[in-house]
Design a protein around this nucleic acid. Structure first.
Length: 491
RNA sequence: CGGGAUGUAGCGUAGUCCGGUCAUCGCGCCUGGUUUGGGACCAGGAGGUCGCAAGUUCGAAUCUUGCCAUCCCGACCA
């Protein structure tokens, strides 16, 4: 192992950083805090986009595109929204450059100052609601179900590839409804979509729940989220869906005439997932040998490595491989045949493990003779030699098995690292010694939540949907509580 | 922005205290050959304003000053 990446146990965050770079997902760019998503990484993101986009369409949404720039005044219209977003934004103040008088390059032309500054969108509620005002007059115009795939900018202090970058890619859904109930139903529905995507595609089990008032999206009345556990026990918010009430409708004066003839403000939602999901994918499944990708999101699902001593042998192998590839492709399975002679088989094995290719086939002289092929699965690293007959069906089944196994493994890990705690001292001890999720009682006040956060760095990730009614006492104050909430240290 | 550290080839590094054949080594890259069932080997080769700018000196990667950048720890966050 000449090029081993750091191990998870030694230094988890270094393992993550190295893995993202070495597996060719992304790298830091020349621009502070901004990353370059490389082709291999981007093809995973494309698969995520495709899966999510299909689900959005199935639930009746359409894509549209709104401006990158937002007039500064828009951001002042929704009071709590400003509070949450006005701070870390990129601001365009000028529209022209000119040559520096001393020839040292270009400078901003001071005469080209904008009348009103433009904000590079940190999220698009404001531009979109200002547009919706023109689109909505009647209850017949509702519901309005729009999504946009876009980039946004948030001027974060410290960045990490995929997890927190200054510019990131995401999708943001923005819907408008004639009733509160319908908006709330939409909010829930989209959280379900996210949960289904996380579990069925990314193979990441998630906990669905409500954010506390402290953690709520700026401008939302209710924020729903899915929370995932990473292999270091920390939580990662994988998606959010917000019930906006009439906040943005009021801020942008978006009203509709009801069937009864009354004029009412519309009800809104917004929901989003970002390239942060890429980080979640890496941290949830991968191991010390590299990425472990769920087959449904893997850019290459099957790689075939020939092992040969002569050109004739390679030709024979290639012929067999063509049959297998054709069969796999017919089933929609992506295959790569790596017959480059730049590297030896051993090198290729390690390389494709690093890149997380779910299934590897190796074929050599031995196999030609016996009519077999070596099948290796990335998730368990098991290898077996199997007959060529029926190989395509076998691989198809194997891919499904791997998808399921990766999910099961993540779920087992989460279960093993979720603790029920009833005492504050134990709470701190579990956090420091074991990490993971903690289900504990909380008195429901922001003050208590804040103090626990300050003292332990743990936050309330969510109030789980399915939290059973249970009498208990707040771990900090001892005041009564009727259900447990989910605490964890988070990304 | 506060605290700490680091900038030497595409990447990772030695040398910096003590100025003088010191620009070192590994990976990668190029050429040719032998190899190929778990990260091959041999031979040859290309590649560096030592972060930038001043200064001290006969002489600076090394000393001084000032910039710039990056990383780690905080405050902020999808």
């Amino acid at each position: 192992m000449a090029n081993a990446i750091p191990s998870r146990s030694e230094n988890y965050s270094e393992w993550y950083n190295e893995l993202v770079k070495r597996a060719d997902l992304a790298e830091n760019s020349a621009v502070r805090g901004c990353m370059v998503i490389k082709p291999y990484g981007f093809s995973i993101w494309e698969k995520m986009q495709r899966a999510l986009d299909d689900m959005f369409k199935e639930t009746g949404h359409m894509n549209a595109y709104f401006p990158l720039f937002i007039p500064k005044s828009f951001l002042s219209k929704e009071a709590s929204h400003v509070e949450g977003f006005a701070k870390e934004c990129a601001v365009v103040t000028h529209y022209r450059l000119k040559n520096a008088p001393d020839g040292s390059g270009v400078i901003v032309d001071p005469d080209a100052k904008l009348e009103e500054e433009l904000i590079v969108r940190p999220t698009s509620e404001t531009v979109i609601w200002s547009t919706y005002k023109n689109w909505i007059q009647s209850y017949r115009d509702l519901p309005l179900l729009i999504n946009q795939w876009a980039n946004v900018v948030r001027w974060e202090m410290r960045t990490r590839l995929f997890l927190r970058t200054t510019e990131f890619l995401w999708q943001e859904g923005h819907t408008a409804h004639s009733t509160s109930d319908e908006a709330m139903a939409e909010t829930r529905q989209m959280l379900e979509v996210y949960a289904r995507f996380a579990e069925e595609w990314a193979a990441i089990p998630v906990i669905k729940g409500y954010k506390t008032a402290n953690e709520r999206f700026a401008g939302a009345e209710e924020t729903l989220c899915i929370e995932a556990m990473m292999q270091d026990g920390k939580a990662l918010q994988a998606g959010t869906s917000h019930y906006l009430g009439q906040n943005f409708a009021k801020a942008f004066d978006v009203k509709f005439q009801s069937k009864a003839g009354t004029l009412e403000y519309v009800w809104g939602t917004s929901w989003g997932v970002s390239t942060r999901l890429m980080g979640a994918l890496v941290m949830a499944h991968s191991d010390d040998s590299g990425l472990v990708l769920p087959p449904k999101l893997a850019p290459i699902q099957v790689v075939i490595v020939p092992i040969y001593r002569s050109e004739e042998q390679l030709a024979q192998i290639t012929e067999k491989v063509k049959e297998i590839s054709a069969g796999l492709r017919k089933k929609g399975i992506s295959v790569k045949f790596d017959d480059s002679d730049a590297n030896k088989p051993g090198w290729k094995f390690a390389e494709y493990e690093l890149r997380g290719v779910p299934v590897r086939l190796a074929m050599g002289a031995r196999d030609l003779e016996n009519g077999t092929v070596e099948v290796a699965r990335r998730d368990t690293k098991e290898k077996m030699t199997v007959q060529l007959e029926g190989i395509v069906d076998r691989i198809e089944t194997l891919l499904e098995e791997i998808q399921q196994n990766i999910y099961d493994k993540a779920l087992a890990f989460r279960t093993a690292n979720t603790h029920y705690v009833d005492d504050y001292a134990e709470f701190k001890q579990v956090l420091d010694e074991k990490g993971g999720f903690i289900l504990a009682h909380w008195d429901g006040t922001p003050e208590t939540e804040e103090r626990i956060k300050e003292e332990t760095k743990a936050t309330i990730r969510c109030i789980p949907y399915n939290a059973p009614e249970e009498e208990g006492k707040c771990i900090l104050t001892g005041r009564p509580s009727s259900r447990r909430v989910l605490f964890a240290r988070a990304y």
